[in-house]
């Protein structure tokens, strides 16, 4: 880790608002993208981002310079996203029928991040249900092993696998529907 970063972290521990801002500016884009992947809409993603950064600032003291700082933050964010979705799963929204959720997603579709390929992929990811999404995120994108995910989510290995395959099948079917469009625009499937 660079010395600059070390100094910034020390200042953050002392409560220097400027240093906190520097830290936030440096990592906000990366971790907002992560939050968007784990949530089903932008509002949730922002919630996770806010709470995640608060967690980071409050536990900076416990960071012991072991391993990469970014990796440490990454772990905090993933863990927080999981616990957030866990909380969310039992909320009012998730108890309504699926159609209302679908409509909520449709509203969000007008967000500006749906214009490019990443936006489209992200949108498909957001359409999955939270458990499938979390597991697909961890396995496919974060490259956790099935065993690690099972341990993290306190599920059985086979359950994780099932959710993962299901998520993949759903994403595939969604992609296939727009395959021609994507093929034309992004030349993806050679």
């Amino acid at each position: 880790m660079s010395q600059d970063m070390q100094k910034t972290i020390e200042k953050c521990i002392q409560g220097d608002a400027g240093a906190q801002r520097v830290l936030y500016d440096r990592y906000k884009a990366r971790f907002y993208a992560l939050c968007l992947r784990y949530s089903s809409n932008a509002d949730e993603a922002q919630d996770i981002l806010i709470e995640g950064f608060l967690k980071v600032f409050n536990s900076l003291e416990n960071y012991r310079n072991e391993g990469e700082f970014e990796g440490w933050m990454h772990r905090i964010f993933v863990n927080h996203a999981i616990s957030y979705m866990h909380r969310k799963r039992n909320d009012v929204l998730s108890k309504n029928n699926e159609r209302e959720i679908d409509e909520a997603i449709l509203v969000d579709r007008n967000d500006n991040y749906t214009t490019d390929l990443k936006g489209i992929l992200l949108h498909y990811l957001n359409c999955l249900n939270p458990k499938e999404r979390t597991i697909f995120n961890m396995v496919a994108i974060e490259e956790y092993s099935i065993v690690e995910v099972a341990k993290e989510l306190n599920l059985k290995k086979t359950v994780v696998k099932t959710y993962y395959y299901r998520a993949r099948a759903r994403l595939k079917s969604m992609l296939q529907k727009n395959e021609k469009e994507l093929l034309r625009e992004y030349n993806l499937y050679e």
Binding site: A29, Y32, A33, Q46, K118, L121, L125, A140, I141
Partner: peptide, 22 residues
């Protein structure tokens, strides 16, 4: 087409700026 790879390629290191209000 591999779904995993597509998503990994598309989203693994992506960056999105959050709104200032955050």
């Amino acid at each position: 087409m591999n779904v995993d790879e597509l998503f990994k390629k598309g989203l693994q290191n992506s960056e999105v700026n959050p709104p200032d209000a955050v």
